[in-house]
Write a protein that binds this DNA or RNA. Structure first.
Lengths: 251, 251
DNA sequence: ACCCGCGCTTTCACTGGATGAAAGCCGACC
DNA sequence: GGTCGGCTTTCATCCAGTGAAAGCGCGGGT
C-alpha cells in the first residue's frame, strides 16, 4: 500500500547503487537489501544482473562492491574525469610552485564534489576524498561555487541549516551573503579556518561557456599562510583551466 | 528488431549506460535508443529516470552525458579510485625519479583498464586514457596481468585473435606463451615496441592477498630506453604498492 | 557427529509497471 | 506558414517483476 508497489524497477536498481558510500564500500546482500529498502529476493535478482554486467562485484567474502565497469562508465562524465584531464597539468604546476594541497571541485545540487586533489606530502593533511561531498558554505571552493551558483541555489543554501565546523564557520546567512558578494567582487575566495582551525584555503573560479563550472583551491596550514600572495596564483590557474575548458571542448 | 521481449528492465538500463564510450560522450535520445537497441519511448522513460537520479545529465544541446552522480558511485570501486589512492604517491615518486610516463592498470576480463597515469610533459605522448581499455598481449602492464591471470583467461587470450599493432607485436601464441613464462620468471615485463615503434614499456606486478591485482609500468621513448636499468625501479614501486594493498585494506 | 540457525537462493501464482504503436507536440529549416 | 525530424505523451495489453514461503548450505555450538 505504501512504498510496497508503485516503485519502478529502475529506481530499485539505482537505490542499490545508492546503498554504497565512502564508509560502506562493501555490503552483504542483506545489508544491500535493507539499505535500498527492498525485499531480499528482489535485491538478490537485481544484484545478480548488476554483477553479470560488472556494475557490482562479488568478493570472496560474499560481500558486494562497486565494480570496475561502473567506474569505467563513470569516468566518462564530462564533469568528472573529463574536467580532471584538463585541470590536472595546471594543478601539478600549482603544486610545483607552492607545494601545498591543490583541490578541484564542482557543485552538485546543494553540495560540492571533489573531482581531484594533489595532496602535498609535507602540507597539512586534507580530510576530503576524491569523489566525496561537502557543504558549500565553508570551504574555499564551496564559497566560489556558491557565489556563482543560480540565485535559487544560493537561497536554498542560505535558508537551510548551515553546519558549523569551527567557531569561524559562517552560519549566519547575513554574513555569508556578504562574503559571497565579496567573492564575486574580488574574483577569489578565502576560507579562513572555517573547516578546521589549522587550515585556510584560497579558491578561484573556473569558467566555461555557461558560467562558473568548477573551482580550484590551495589548502595551506594557517600559521604559514599568506592568502593574499597565493590568490593571484590560484586565480591564474583558474583562468588557464577556463581557457582549456572553453577551447577544444566547446560543447 | 529481434530481441523484442524477454529482456529485463535492468538490462535495458545498463544497455543505455553502455551506449556511452570514449568516442561518444554525448548522445541524443535517438542515438541512445539505437545504440541500446530500444524503442524510442522506452529509452525516453528509462533515460528520464536516470536523469532524475543523476546517472545521466542533459545538456543545453539536448544531448545526454554521463552524470556526476554516476562518477561518484563509480569512484567507490575498490579497483578504481581505491587502488589509485594507494598507488598515486608511489607513482609520483617514480615519476620524480625518471620523468617518464607512469601507468597503472588492472585486468577486466580479457582486456586491461587503465586506472591512473602520470603523463610526463616531456616524455613520449601516450595514447591511452584513464578509464580506457586495451588488449592484454601487447603492453607491459598487459603482459604482467596476463602472465599472472588464471590459466583459463590465458588460454582464451591465446586462442582469440591477437591484434597486431606493430611488426613486433606478439601475434604468435607460441611466442607469447614463452614471453609470459619469462615474465613470471624474472618478475617484470618488457614490451619492446609492441604497441608503437617509438616506445617501450617496463612493467611490474602489484600483488594483493589473492595474487596479482594490478600492474605498474613506465613507458619510455625507444631511443633513450634502458629497460634493464628501469626494471628494478618499477619492481620496487610495485612492491611498495603491494605492501600498502595487503596492509590496512586487508581482505 | 549431530543439530540449530542464519543468510542466501529458488519456486510459483499473481499483478501492476513496462511496453510500443500511434497520435500529439515543438522547433528548425525551407 | 508549411513541412519535416525528433521528442513526448497516451492507452490498452501483457509479461517481467514480485514477495511469501519453502529449500538449501554452511558454520558454530553442544
Amino acid at each position: 500500500m505504501q512504498a510496497r508497489s508503485g516503485r519502478s524497477v529502475t529506481s530499485k536498481v539505482l537505490a542499490l547503487l545508492d546503498a554504497f558510500g565512502p564508509t560502506e564500500p562493501a555490503l552483504t546482500l542483506s545489508e544491500l537489501a535493507r539499505r535500498a529498502g527492498l525485499p531480499l529476493p528482489t535485491a538478490h535478482r537485481r544484484v545478480a544482473e548488476l554483477v553479470a554486467w560488472g556494475a557490482l562485484e562479488r568478493g570472496d567474502d560474499a560481500r558486494y562492491r562497486v565494480g570496475l565497469r561502473l567506474w569505467e562508465v563513470g569516468s566518462l562524465a564530462p564533469r568528472g574525469l573529463g574536467l580532471r584531464e584538463l585541470a590536472l597539468p595546471v594543478m601539478e604546476d600549482l603544486y610545483e610552485v607552492t607545494h601545498e594541497n591543490v583541490q578541484l571541485a564542482v557543485r552538485q545540487g546543494l553540495e560540492l564534489v571533489f573531482i581531484e586533489r594533489i595532496a602535498g606530502r609535507h602540507a597539512v593533511p586534507v580530510l576530503t576524498r576524491v569523489g566525496g561531498r561537502f557543504a558549500l558554505h565553508a570551504t574555499g571552493v564551496g564559497l566560489v561555487l556558491l557565489a556563482h551558483a543560480p540565485a535559487e541555489v544560493q537561497e536554498q543554501v542560505l535558508a537551510g541549516p548551515l553546519d558549523r565546523y569551527t567557531e569561524l564557520t559562517s552560519t549566519d546567512p547575513k554574513r555569508l551573503r556578504r562574503q559571497l558578494a565579496e567573492v564575486r567582487r574580488v574574483g577569489y575566495a578565502i576560507s579562513d579556518r572555517q573547516v578546521t582551525m589549522d587550515a585556510l584555503s584560497v579558491a578561484a573560479p573556473i569558467r566555461g561557456p555557461d558560467g562558473v563550472q568548477a573551482a580550484i583551491s590551495l589548502v595551506v596550514a594557517y600559521d604559514r599562510a599568506d592568502p593574499l600572495a597565493l590568490a593571484p596564483l590560484v586565480q591564474a590557474a583558474g583562468r588557464v583551466i577556463s581557457r582549456a575548458l572553453s577551447g577544444p571542448h566547446g560543447r
